[in-house]
Write a protein that binds this DNA or RNA. Structure first.
Lengths: 127, 127
DNA sequence: TTTACCATTTACGTTAACGTTAAGTTCAAC
DNA sequence: GTTGAACTTAACGTTAACGTAAATGGTAAA
């Protein structure tokens, strides 16, 4: 069956079991339990963990990530609920776009700076 | 003259004076002092703070940022030193590029997800 | 059935990045 | 020259995101 244990997931994502339990603790995951109380993870939690780790890597904290995870999990029924979800999602996308732009600016500045060094080196090697 | 006080800088960047003092404490800044021991900030520190805050915003920790700041501050003389600096800088640029790519992937996934909701909404509004 | 491993909860410990308070110093204005 | 804002260092406090240790339970193999 497609059920994973907590240690299997931890190995998959190269984190500790504590980390995964902590994510459940703060409401990022809600894995089902089997008869004896052990957590049963499925593809759903795998996907959520992907989102969590990517978010973390790019400077979002767990609270912001939680908002996104929950956004993509709930099934909004009703026009009003749908509209609000879409609006919220567009805001988040906007945030990400801004981050991309500023990262690109950062990259450009670094490249310009390196160019100065590169020119310097070229001058030294022309002799 | 082009000297700024710590509170002027703090206001500029919308952070506390403690934050700026902390950055000096861990070696990110080395502002000169005037006769009576007060810190004197110049354009140089302004530029460094720009780099610091942008780096922070995008998930780099202060140790990583320190490496970048120091990279762009030291004046590498000598061919070997220049080459090493350039190589290191190119690595850092590569890291930033990777982050940009993954953020764009993240954005795409979010847009796809929202599209599903948008379609749902359109169907509801067609009636 | 005992060994051994994996799971569980509880709870205290740790680190980065500051916040906050205290106690004293300097500067600018009155 | 005194008052008050802005500066200094020193040191303890705080929060997020886990690490780690202790005590306990289920289960599969020897």
């Amino acid at each position: 069956m497609s059920h994973y244990s907590i240690s299997e997931l931890a190995a998959q994502f190269n984190v500790s079991t504590r980390t995964i339990r902590y994510y459940e603790e703060v409401g990022l995951l809600q894995p089902k339990r089997n008869k004896s109380g052990h957590r049963q993870f499925t593809k759903k939690e795998m996907t959520q963990l992907q989102l969590i780790f990517r978010g973390k890597k790019y400077g979002f904290n767990l609270d912001e990530i939680k908002e996104m995870v929950l956004l993509f999990e709930e099934d909004p029924t009703g026009k009003e609920q749908l509209k609000r979800t879409i609006e919220y999602g567009e805001d988040k996308i906007h945030e990400v776009s801004k981050r991309i732009q500023e990262l690109e600016q950062m990259k450009n500045e670094m490249e310009q700076f390196l160019q100065v060094f590169q020119d310097e080196l070229n001058k030294l090697e022309e002799e």
